[in-house]
Design a binder for these strands. Structure first.
Lengths: 354, 354
DNA sequence: ATGAAAGCGCTAACAC
DNA sequence: GTGTTAGCGCTTTCAT
């Protein structure tokens, strides 16, 4: 069912059909009505490929994430997609899985499909990826950091604030011995979070010994392995702050296999606030980074780059804030008076130590 | 950088470039080499839109899932995408979120983008969706069930076997009072799983009272709500079989808020074996449905429908089997002798009741 | 306000 | 074996 079928059925030229479809105001309302009727009758759908070919715009947005199987990303994808579709864009998703080859092929695919812009939400981009993308000078948005070029926009997450919220919560409960499990340190955002941790601790006059800063990889497996290293230490910290929620889930699991209970023996804090966090046992205290806000910023930034007279065309930076969500994986440090009082009080039915 | 730039640079016609790019064997190797060199030099990438326009094939596959935020689906998406990309296809993902409007718009988008085929992996399709899709007679693959039409293929999951594995495991441990939390009963696959449960119970001479069969919705929230209804009953079942893992996670959470422990007081079994299952507290016993197998079958089925001389062009049905993965959310029924022995034995350090 | 026609980048049929 | 050319379905001048 091509534009020609509609044209002949409506008794007009294909140009008129095109104009009607694109809601060009100059078409005669009567003719337009006839066209729309014909469209209904033959069940016409404009061919996007042809449109893209002539207009030079595909109305497709690329969205590159690190790992689609990390639950944070589907949440982001969902929000991003909703927004994009609402604005008439289709989304091409790609998952790098931290592999340079995959990433390269991803870029090639996106380029070939003529996406109008791409959002790189990998939280720390491999440098060569940037290169390729930047060469063709088309709209790009990064999280955290990207090269300072005319077509590039960036969404910055306030890690300093987020991590500080976690550290201060722990410190307020009385924790002094706080460990940190970072993400893979190749990723800028992982480094940013770790540095924010160090800074937040220093602000409170606290220092973490080197063996309390351990590198994870933002997966449950990584969190588990990192926690096991912490458990092997002579002195177990009283709290662990994790670079993301998946890491925290791994930590919970590692602890489950020991005699230590959360939060009585050790407090655990995550980062991201994925939907799953509240269903963990115990429900995870975490720092929320709204992926809705993130998606909104990313889509807006992309549109600002694509559409010539977009109101925010000149804006280069967007900012995302965080907030602490206190649930049940944090408590007073073990052995302290408030913890003992708490423990004594919680021996009734309906409550149980985890 | 169009085909013309390459042609002039290599000193050949655009037809030759096209042939070289498409690896048509009749081109002079010497010319082909020149073409490839020119391609390298100008950084040429064929325009997919133009290709699609003329060839009538977009090399895009649609993949429709219920909810991208249910962790089972990203795993499926990942596998599907890997396979599709390896065969030269791009994947357009859509999430229905169980909304008919969203679904309708999804279909329209896929149609407009000229996808070569679509895999409907929603585990129970809304009937009108089928209609629309079926009208344009292009390749389609469904899970579980689809209308019997020439272009339609279906991947069948052996729920009978899967659920039986779960029930028999529980029965083997000595459970007689087994509850079942189903998915939303609008979905065929949810009904299939529930019926399989009833049948498996009957095979063992067991019957579940009506109040032990409760409807969930395949989310954690639904699982939690369903379990709360079970908890409110006069007599708590000794085991609960869930229609999927997300439901089971909700069940674990509901139980966590009571004095009942898993698996000592009640055993819980999931279905799907998502990656997360092994990290639950306690690690979830579940019935694995390999999403790799599923994705493989779906992609193969789609290709069989798209590519004229595909070896399996005539095949209409693919089958997926399941297997039981025993972890730590199941145990002997509470109060039975083996349970008491177990309990007495597990009082040492390093083990703890959950 | 409407139609005729050019052309987006490519493939494939046809001629040489 | 290679080049010429006619479209694929659409948007967009340019006439009318």
């Amino acid at each position: 069912m091509s534009i020609r079928d509609v044209a002949s059925r409506a008794g007009v030229s294909i140009a008129t059909v095109s104009r009607a479809v694109n809601r060009i105001p100059t078409v005669d309302p009567e003719l337009a009505a006839r066209v729309w009727r014909a469209i209904e009758e033959v069940g016409y759908l404009p061919n996007t490929q042809a449109r893209a070919l002539v207009s030079g715009r595909s109305h497709m947005l690329g969205l590159i994430v690190s790992e689609i199987t990390n639950p944070f990303f589907p949440e982001l994808v969902q929000e991003f997609e909703n927004l994009a579709v609402a604005q008439g864009y289709e989304v091409l998703i790609g998952s790098t899985n931290y592999s340079p080859e995959r990433t390269a092929s991803l870029i090639r695919r996106m380029l070939q499909r003529n996406v109008d812009g791409v959002a790189v939400m990998t939280f720390g981009i491999e440098e060569d990826l940037v290169q390729k993308l930047v060469e063709r000078e088309f709209p790009l948005v990064f999280v955290d950091a990207g090269p300072d070029l005319p077509n590039i926009r960036v969404v910055k997450v306030n890690y300093g604030e987020g991590i500080r919220q976690g550290v201060q919560h722990l410190a307020a409960l009385g924790h002094r011995s706080i460990a940190f499990i970072s993400g893979p340190l190749r990723l800028r955002s992982a480094v940013a979070r770790r540095d924010a941790f160090l800074k937040s601790m220093a602000e409170l006059g606290l220092t973490a010994p080197a063996e309390h800063i351990v590198e994870g990889d933002h997966t449950m497996e990584g969190g588990m392995a990192a926690m096991e290293r912490l458990i092997a230490l002579a002195e177990l910290p009283t709290a662990v702050l994790c670079s993301n929620d998946m890491t925290a889930i791994g930590v919970l699991h590692a602890l489950y296999k020991t005699t230590h209970t959360v939060p009585q023996d050790i407090s655990v804090v995550g980062f991201d606030d994925i939907h799953l966090a509240q269903f963990m046992l115990p429900p995870l205290t975490t720092v929320q980074m709204s992926c809705k806000d993130l998606a909104e910023a990313a889509v807006e930034a992309l549109r600002a780059g694509i559409e010539r007279e977009h109101p925010r065309a000149a804006k280069k930076e967007w900012h995302i804030s965080t907030r602490l969500v206190v649930r049940q994986s944090t408590a007073f440090p073990r052995g302290t008076l408030p913890a003992l009082v708490e423990r004594a009080a919680s021996n009734g039915p309906g409550k149980r130590s985890y």
